[in-house]
Design a binder for these strands. Structure first.
Length: 588
RNA sequence: GGGGUCGUAGUUCAGUUGGUUAGAACGUCGGCCUGUCACGCCGAAGGUCGCGAGUUCGAGUCUCGUCGGCCCCGCCA
């Protein structure tokens, strides 16, 4: 196909080019055929330029232009011209000019697309995903991917400037237990053996510290074979960071510097440093989440003291069993109807709560189905503790510490929505959550699991507790939270092989098992491991938030559906018997 | 593994207590139109109501199953 190389993109012509002869290439965004004159909006990723076909200017081009339809790929040659004054289009950067065409080449025709290529379309996401190449033509998607590109560049530049080395780590690695399910890759050369795709480059980056690279980063894909969410895909991108001879504060300093840059360059906002910090316990008891959204107040209140001697059996039992009674004050919601309250009760029950206690605060006291169970002193103490006034609504949930707080945390977010507390223009909330527990008890398997991962260092002063009260040991672990989303998490690692052995022991991992699964890492540590620590960012999630989107799919070029399917290329798919045979695999 | 919700024209949706020929807008196609930019006007085509059973004289509508999308819980070191 003969066509002239473009002289300009569709986004760059301005009044200064009037009179110049230009060649533009692009897609037909829309056509307006007025009979005697045809207007085409020509589109590429740089913008839109209106090109005009007039029979008086060139009859042949005008005749051919009648055939043009949406998404045809064309090349036009003509003269830049100023528009008549009353036909300027202030909505387009190129709206002061148009191009009068005397030569049109149709480079490719296009069938009618299944949905219109424009912003603010209302199309089901599955259709967009099936025709992703059309969806990606929309300026909103182009904007998102260009933002993503910008963030890559800022991140790379920042770490480079701070002496970090970018190192690629393997995509085919050893399957490690503890944590998410691995995606497995069968080995053809080694019958019955499998590689795993990395859930994270964790072990490699620690080994790079042993190897003396001192400061490492990588922007890399990770894979986890778990169920999906709006902010979780089976393959996703992580900014992986590790540093030697550091403590928590050093990691924070580097990360805060990056966030300051991103806030400035993406949002043009000055981020104030140092970032606020909350301990895990505080975050849970005040906000019912380890990734609290602090764009609004609405704090939860611990009520164990208020009901310490309560006659109310539910509270009684909770306190006896070491649980928590947590309250939430919904300002001015005292007029909620029984029906609204039933909906909210249902909401918490679905999350596993036994029930939801609510009380309307009146001038003359508390109005609630359970009011009769409480003494006047308790009621007064409750009102005082909650800082409640007439016209308010109090919610109370009691139960096992983690569960009750998590459910109340969800109710907190739900109420924030209902009370419209998250304003469109609210300042973003970025903070550290620190002092996570090192271990988490699992009822099902009756053992402790590492909350972060088994290489996470406990706080030095808590090490003696590892034997006596493992659940109380705090980790040198931290999460970075933006607007209620965990965007990064990391820790200072164990670099001492004795402490690491202790950790495995607490986790119920035998010496033999540890040797088999993590022997290579333990072995490396024998040859001089520096103290080290690091962090990993959920890159997609971070870009999602910077883009103001609600799903990471909006900032990924080719995401999967929530059932893990790729609708465009129809994967996963079956494979041939020959392929299976080569891989020594028999389906059952 | 569990819960919720949705599935009707190419697209987004409406469709009443189960009842005549399943509608609208946008898009598409054709005609007219020389300054439009949500072009306008006239006309037309376009439907396996996701799929499969069942109930019924009669099912887009009710029941069961199944497939798929989205959201959430579990899960995600």
């Amino acid at each position: 196909m003969q066509f002239k190389r473009r002289t300009h993109t569709c986004g760059e012509l301005r009044e200064s080019k009037i009179g110049e002869r230009v060649v533009l290439n692009g897609w037909v965004d829309s056509r307006r055929d007025l009979g005697g004159v045809i207007f085409i909006d020509l589109r590429d990723r740089y913008g839109i330029t209106q090109v005009v076909f007039e029979p008086a200017f060139n009859k042949e081009a005008h005749e051919l232009a009648k055939k043009l339809r949406s998404e045809f790929v064309i090349s036009v040659e003509g003269v830049v011209r100023n528009r008549p004054e009353d036909t300027l289009n202030p909505n387009l950067p190129t709206g002061m000019i148009d191009v009068k065409v005397d030569k049109l080449i149709i480079l490719n025709e296009a069938v009618t697309p299944p949905f219109q290529i424009k912003d603010n379309i209302d199309v089901n996401e599955d259709l967009r995903l099936k025709y992703r190449y059309l969806d990606l033509r929309r300026s909103k998607m182009q904007k998102n991917l260009l933002l993503r590109h910008k963030v890559y560049q800022i991140v790379r530049r920042y770490f480079d400037e701070n002496n970090f080395v970018e190192v690629e780590t393997p995509m085919l690695m050893k399957s490690t237990p503890e944590g998410a399910r691995d995606f497995l890759v069968p080995s053809r050369l080694h019958k019955g053996k499998f590689y795993a795709l990395p859930q994270s480059p964790q072990t490699y980056k620690q080994i790079l510290m042993v190897a003396g690279y001192d400061r490492y980063f990588q922007i890399t894909k990770c894979f986890r074979d778990e169920d999906l969410r709006a902010d979780r895909q089976p393959e996703f991108t992580q900014i992986d960071v590790e540093m030697s001879f550091v403590d928590v504060e050093d990691v924070f300093e580097i990360v805060e510097g990056l966030m300051k840059k991103l806030f400035k360059e993406v949002w043009n906002k000055e981020l104030e440093l140092p970032l606020p910090r909350l301990s895990f316990n505080e975050a849970m008891e005040k906000y019912g989440s380890d990734k609290p959204d602090l764009r609004f107040e609405l704090e939860m209140v611990k009520l164990n003291d208020v009901f310490a001697n309560s006659e109310f059996r539910v509270f009684n039992n909770t306190i006896e069993e070491g649980g928590i009674i947590t309250g939430l004050l919904a300002k001015g919601c005292g007029d909620y109807t029984r029906n609204q309250l039933d909906v909210l009760t249902n909401f918490v029950k679905k999350l596993g709560a036994g029930g939801l206690i609510w009380m309307r605060v009146r001038e003359d006291g508390l109005e609630a189905p359970v009011a009769k169970f409480f003494s006047e002193e308790e009621k007064q103490a409750l009102i005082k503790q909650m800082n409640a006034e007439a016209g308010d609504l109090i919610f109370i949930i009691s139960g096992q510490w983690n569960k009750a707080l998590t459910i109340m945390g969800n109710l907190r977010l739900e109420m924030a929505k209902r009370m419209n507390l998250i304003k469109e223009d609210a300042e973003p909330s970025l903070l550290w959550v620190t002092d996570f527990p090192l271990l988490e008890w699992d009822d099902e398997t009756q053992r402790f699991y590492a909350m972060h991962h088994p290489f996470t260092s406990p706080r030095v002063e808590d090490i003696p507790l590892m034997d006596s009260e493992p659940a109380k040991v705090r980790a040198r672990a931290y999460d970075l939270v933006l607007n209620g989303n965990e965007i990064a998490g990391g820790s200072i690692r164990i670099h001492d092989s004795k402490l690491q052995s202790k950790m495995f022991e607490v986790l119920g991992i035998s010496k033999e098992e540890a040797e088999e699964k993590f022997g290579f890492l333990m072995n490396a540590f024998k040859y001089g491991a520096p103290p080290h620590g690091g962090i990993a960012f959920g890159f997609d999630r971070m870009v999602m938030l910077f883009a103001g989107e609600n799903s990471i799919r909006e900032v990924m070029a080719f995401p999967k559906t929530s059932s893990g399917l790729s609708l465009m290329d129809d994967s996963p798919s079956t494979v041939s018997e020959e392929q299976l045979k080569e891989l020594h695999i028999k389906l059952r």
